[in-house]
Design a protein around this nucleic acid. Structure first.
Length: 271
DNA sequence: TTCCAGGTGGCAT
DNA sequence: ATGCCACATGGA
């Protein structure tokens, strides 16, 4: 195991990072200790005060993955300045960081997320990895697997996914794997959006999640059932178009951060 | 039993 | 361009 120690970390709370709904493969094993698999690497992350200790089976740029080089204090200050009613959400999710995740894993995970709930999404992603990923490590009697790459999924028959219980999304995932193998997108926000929408099973909401969590477009503002409730409740806004315009005007480049603080706060409080 | 979950595609206006 | 509705699955 490789150990990485990162000192003087700020604005981070592991529960907020891993339970705010952006990722599906991290498990809490104790207070401020999580284990998970990232980009083929098994890792155990421990936070002690402002010290981050990471034991991992391989090399990974943890500063990048955990977005540690970004000043979240500044982001929260800016969001509060532009919208003071964000105060409670910003304080509640004070330790959120938007992870820089693997694009392919995010793409598949959020195809699965449509019309689905988080525990079941997690289960599907886990089963996909167990069945089609590579065994990486055994921890506390449990085996951990990498997320299968597009090539591994592309060669499957639809029936191979029966055990995963993806429902009608199984077809989308196999099609996505085939398309993803042939296409890539090193491009701007508009081109990336169009590229994502062109996948069967990816619409505007899922596309925005992928833009935000897998492609580093932090202005992306995913609008799901929760955000719709929040926008109605806080700003009496209805309809994707008006919500989009509001987010763009109000939060601008920080739209994705704002969305995540709001989503996490309201979903946890079940307002 | 019915409703809901980080929605989307297809089809009808 | 906009408005319905079916779609798999499992928990409440």
């Amino acid at each position: 195991m490789l150990n990485t120690r990162i000192t003087d970390v700020k604005d981070i709370n592991l529960d907020h990072v891993f339970q705010c709904g952006q990722c599906f493969r991290w498990d809490k094993v104790d207070d401020d200790i999580y284990i998970g698999v990232v980009k083929g690497v098994f890792a155990k992350i421990t936070l002690k005060g402002d010290l981050l200790d990471i034991d991992a089976t391989g090399n990974l740029n943890w500063n990048e993955y955990l977005d540690l080089d970004r000043d979240y204090g500044e982001i929260k200050a800016e969001l509060f300045k532009s919208e003071e009613s964000m105060k409670e959400a910003l304080e509640y999710g004070y330790g959120i960081r938007i992870l820089n995740q693997d694009l392919w894993e995010v793409l598949v995970s959020f195809i699965i997320s449509q019309n689905n709930n988080i525990p079941r999404i997690r289960g599907c992603v886990e089963k996909l990895s167990e069945k089609f990923g590579d065994e990486i490590y055994e921890y506390d009697g449990k085996k951990y697997y990498s997320f299968p790459d597009a090539a591994a999924i592309a060669k499957l028959d639809i029936a191979d996914l029966d055990d995963i219980k993806l429902g009608y999304r199984a077809r989308y995932i196999i099609d996505a794997a085939k398309q993803y193998q042939m296409e890539s997108c090193d491009c701007d926000l508009e081109q990336a959006t169009n590229w994502l929408i062109s996948f069967n099973g990816i619409g505007p909401k899922v596309a925005n999640c992928i833009l935000l969590f897998g492609m580093g477009f932090h202005s992306a503002f995913p609008i799901d059932v929760w955000v719709k409730r929040i926008m109605k409740e806080m700003f009496n806004l209805v309809g994707d178009k008006s919500i989009n315009e509001f987010a763009k005007m109000k939060f601008g480049e920080y739209g994705g951060f704002a969305q995540q603080y709001l989503f996490y706060y309201f979903r946890e409080k079940k307002i």
